[in-house]
Nucleic acid binder design. Structure first.
Lengths: 150, 150
DNA sequence: ATATATTCTATCTTCTTAATAGGGTATTTG
DNA sequence: CAAATACCCTATTAAGAAGATAGAATATAT
């Protein structure tokens, strides 16, 4: 059970992107520095997010990236699938074990399908807006805890 | 979303082991040949299953492996965890993304926890006995289909 | 023109997985 | 006891994916 660094960086980038007012851009450099993500690596990731229809870009002076849609309409499933491949119950995974295909014993195939189905269910009900809210609430919880102990 | 070859082979081996009457052993060689699994690789896997308390072994002439417990009492969770590491919602994963630890933004951590929690739920309700039944039913379905089309 | 910022393609490094190798140890049987 | 059997243990190798870096190309605003 693991998510790649790419997926992790993508999620962080998109939460970051959600902080910017609709229609305004942010730059790779800022995002990379503020989040401790290797800049050149991040370039590739944002490009993939753009190709997935999640981000838009403006080139040249004053350019940068921005969300292609509102956070409420961006499902975690799209984000994760852009980097991990299809997650849905009947879709083949990228790795060794493919669900639904005959190369595996049916029982193993079925178990794999159940597992990826469960993950897909989670990913399809979380949106980017939910993640941002979760992040904000965690920050608030931390702030309050610090107050208590000073 | 992927299971390692080790996990796949382990599941196949345990389904195979379940076919043997309680108390009787099977040999690595047979299991490897009948399932097309590299023998030396399989040795390592069975050893891990033994250390996980899922298999028992008898050395020497007439020895081999056998299930340590009845298939109804062996949860898929144990099997998968023996090779993929902890899956539970609050346990840290082996890979880059750890749930519950502070190195990640809370929102990403939370999402990872939801995902692994969903998988853990599936794995804790499937037993080895269920997998064997699933395998048998699939074989039966296939047999009937063949009849129809001849 | 020039500065800015994304885009593209290639490469490199590191780590994990999958597999192999070779001897060691326990146990049964004649 | 000797020999055959079958698991036990540790190390190494090979291949591929993931993570990261490099450098130049292209588009755009001023």
């Amino acid at each position: 059970m693991r998510l790649s660094k790419k997926t992790e960086y993508a999620l962080r980038a998109l939460i970051y992107a959600s902080r910017y007012p609709e229609g305004t851009t942010f730059q790779i450099r800022d995002l990379a520095e503020k989040n401790g993500i290797p800049k050149k690596f991040l370039e590739l990731i944002l490009l993939e997010l753009k190709n997935a229809g999640i981000l838009e870009s403006r080139r040249g002076v004053g350019g940068g990236y921005l969300l292609a849609r509102r956070p409420e309409t961006i499902r975690a499933e799209e984000i994760v699938e852009a980097f991990e491949g299809p997650v849905a119950a009947d879709a083949p995974a990228r790795g060794a074990v493919r669900t639904g295909r005959g190369e595996l014993p049916p029982a193993v195939s079925r178990l794999a399908a159940e597992m990826s189905g469960a993950v897909a269910a989670v990913l399809s009900r979380w949106t980017l807006a939910d993640l941002v809210r979760e992040e904000d609430e965690a920050t608030e919880r931390r702030r309050r805890n610090v107050m208590y102990f000073i």
